[in-house]
Amino acid sequence: MTGIVLETKGLKRRFGAFLATNDVNLKVERGARHALIGPNGAGKTTLINLLTGVLPPSEGKVFLEGEDITSLASFRRVKRGLTRTFQINQLFTDFTPLETVALAIAEREGIGHNLWRSIAGYGAVVDEAAALLDRFGLASVMGERTAILPYGKQRLLEIALAFASKPRVLLLDEPAAGVPEDERHEVLAIVSDLPSDVTVVLIEHDMELVFSFASRISVLVAGAIFTEGTVREISADPRVKAVYLGENA
């Protein structure tokens, strides 16, 4: 089954006089590996915030599987299968990884409002949480406080947590950002092993990773889509190089 799963129409976001997102029309195909690249300050994270309802857009609309989700709260988008990770870890630092993931599974299963039964009583939830943590290499630390975990492990938990909601569309905001070199391969392996029926939108600065992972690339510059294409097209485009070199110069 193909088709457009996530789409924006004329999306704009202003911060005062600053236009952080400028008329973005993005189309993401089902099952795609869609990379979003661009120099710092191009508005990549703002775009993700607009897609997931962290920020309301100033203008324009967001569609998930053809339905207008522009005015839906974040949690409702999650229920419809759209979730994300954050560039800077947004974890529940007082929770253990097990509690963190169990919470997301409980909410997904619609038992989050139950105030009478202990979580321990939901065997299926606990088992699933354990299995998920095991797959993300977090089983050994499942009972530790998240705040004291090494950064690489927290990064994995960040992804595992998004994954626990069983998303159909997963937005990854620089998943390997800040991860020390020796823990990096673990995160990258997880990202490249994501199941193919999940549509993935990836923000990343590491071009090697982008080119090996993505099927399609959108280049964002100054809040607008600069160009879009396949890996081959983008990697051969001299203008894209110029945009990046311009930033480094």
Binding site: T52, G53, V54, A73, S74, F75, V78, K79, T83, R84, F86, Q90, L91, F92, T93, D94, F95, L103, A104, E107, R108, G112, L161, A162, A164, S165
Partner: peptide
């Protein structure tokens, strides 16, 4: 406790 700890992430794991 998730809402208390990090309201933005709580929304992003589906907590109303």
């Amino acid at each position: 406790k998730a809402i208390k700890g990090n309201p933005m992430r709580a929304g992003m794991v589906g907590v109303p």
